[in-house]
Design a protein around this nucleic acid. Sequence first.
DNA 1: AGATAAAAGTTTTATTATAAAACTAAATGT
DNA 2: ACATTTAGTTTTATAATAAAACTTTTATCT
Lengths: 171, 171
Amino acid sequence: MPIPENHDPFKRSISHVLEIIGEGWSLLIIREAFFGVHRFEEFQSQLGIARNILTARLKKLCETQILERVPIKEGAKRHEYMLTSKGKELMPVLIALTQWGDRWIFGENAEPVIFMDREHNEPIAKIKVRSARGGDLRPREIMVVPGPGSTPESKKRIEEMHRRLESGVDA
Amino acid sequence: MPIPENHDPFKRSISHVLEIIGEGWSLLIIREAFFGVHRFEEFQSQLGIARNILTARLKKLCETQILERVPIKEGAKRHEYMLTSKGKELMPVLIALTQWGDRWIFGENAEPVIFMDREHNEPIAKIKVRSARGGDLRPREIMVVPGPGSTPESKKRIEEMHRRLESGVDA
DNA sequence: AGATAAAAGTTTTATTATAAAACTAAATGT
DNA sequence: ACATTTAGTTTTATAATAAAACTTTTATCT
């Protein structure tokens, strides 16, 4: 569990996200939710996750507002777990992971599942990193600069990074 | 650690990916590699990771061909860890995660770092799920169908999912 | 209405992974 | 050649996860 004790915002930018959704099962639970699974027992049987762990994960995902406990119907005490907008916006992450796996683990013609554009009934596009103008960006065409949430410390870190990348025929 | 004992390809499609890069530190190591960190000591000091864990993660990332051990120079026995193409193609995942965190954890005007289009010197676009035609897709405009790597079992699972999604005012 | 079962968790115990720190061997710079 | 990095091991302590049995509340059936 990655919790760097220094609170450098530079590091927080991904590691803090991973604290929330990086724990083994979390993304799988979120994926099941996308696929219409909402109840404790269903998550459990679909994933084969230990029930105490499922309890802990659902709790955390609710606390972080990725899932929401809603009563199963008007005034019921039993409830189900629904994705919030915050949770739904993890779709690109999930699809990017899946597409990477399709390409590099299963192979282009052995995808277990295909994501389809429902309206046009054809596969969705590959997720890509694009410039504001819309063109594809390759890793070396991307660089990183301090944002409004940066600190002197993180600025130093980024400068160091630039020096590193300039010096080698790198990345 | 998510290793569902049933080998349903439907489940494997993300969980198998997570077995490779889902372990706490892995993505952080990969991110450091993108930022020009390549040596054991540097990974260790940047991340504050325990050295035995770093050893294990680097080993696994090499075994899975995300990183590659290359001699530091011609014929040297000491080496460094470089991203392979397979590793580099995780960029969209990393950026999607970061952008999600910027939006939902740090807030739109408090991003620790900004990814820039180097050539045009402006922030990159937000990563989105798009149709083959290029338009944005919202979660409910996406559906899932069995791919060439599916099995009867996974097909059943997907049908079940469709039933579920049709029946409720869902997701 | 009452019995039966299912749903949604707890609790307990065992196993496994992670962290921290000290240690070691090889490779490099001076 | 010698001191210092570098890149790891090893050991021990701590924390997370898994499996299984147990509890309690809510549905379902007759």
